[in-house]
Simulated assay, not measured.
Amino acid sequence: MNLFKRGMIFVTFFGSCLTIALIVAAMGTKFWIVARARRLSNPEESNGKINFGLFKGKKELNVAYGWRTYEINIVEQLHADREFLIYGLWVATIGCLCGALLFSALSAVFAVINTASTPSGAITGVPGLYLWNTLAMFFDLAAVSLWAVQFYQKLQYNVMSIEDRDNMWSSSQMSAFGYSFWFVVGAVVVHFVNIVVIYIGTSEGREKKVPQPMIEEKSNGAIMLY
């Protein structure tokens, strides 16, 4: 394996590490959704700001008496109010991110192995690098898609708790995707770039190997003439 090919494969190691960091940040931060809120009974005198991630969040409400801050625990809120999120989509999003983490880690590990040596097996070699990056990208895309469905089916209409809804609070049409969500979109892009880099690196390797059989054939022909 030539130096260029090894170098290009090693670049994908850094890309895989970046995707791991992006996914971990997405799961740990509290900005999958950001929203504003108003109290329907007095919209001019009320204001609210809400943000939450897959597990935690924060809510700030002001009813003309000053801002009050509340912590949001998604698991507890789901137990208290099954209408808050579509439970199956929430679980599936977390599961897909865990799958993306696993395959991102595998793509990083095998990028190092392929840089240091030339594995004979397909799964451990260059075809495996395509596989791990493609699977990681698939799970990232699945998580993005599931959360988008969650947003358009549920979160764009209301992100308030049942107590807030009973108190006439609403965030209808005032919600948007936060930066935690876009971290996962970024991971999709990085894995796609990894696949392109692997293709460029291995294609270069194949091009350099093409003349070799011709040279060997000419040498063998000359020997036969003698």
Results as ranks from 00 to 15, higher is better:
5 K>G: 05
6 R>H: 00
10 F>Q: 01
14 F>M: 12
16 S>C: 07
16 S>P: 03
19 T>M: 03
24 V>P: 10
27 M>F: 14
29 T>M: 03
34 V>N: 15
34 V>D: 13
37 A>P: 06
43 P>Q: 06
43 P>S: 07
45 E>H: 14
46 S>K: 09
50 I>E: 03
53 G>D: 01
53 G>T: 01
53 G>F: 01
56 K>L: 12
56 K>I: 15
56 K>R: 13
57 G>S: 02
60 E>H: 04
63 V>Q: 12
70 Y>E: 09
75 V>S: 15
77 Q>R: 12
77 Q>N: 13
78 L>W: 04
85 L>S: 02
86 I>Y: 00
90 W>G: 05
94 I>T: 06
97 L>E: 13
102 L>A: 11
105 A>Y: 01
108 A>N: 03
111 A>G: 04
116 A>D: 08
117 S>K: 09
117 S>W: 11
121 G>R: 06
128 G>V: 08
132 W>S: 03
134 T>V: 09
148 A>R: 15
150 Q>F: 05
151 F>M: 13
153 Q>N: 15
155 L>S: 09
161 S>W: 00
165 R>G: 07
168 M>A: 15
179 Y>F: 11
182 W>M: 09
184 V>P: 02
186 G>Q: 04
188 V>I: 15
189 V>A: 09
189 V>I: 08
189 V>D: 01
195 I>N: 09
201 G>T: 04
202 T>P: 05
204 E>H: 13
204 E>W: 13
209 K>C: 13
211 P>M: 10
214 M>Q: 10
217 E>V: 12
224 M>Y: 11
226 Y>R: 13
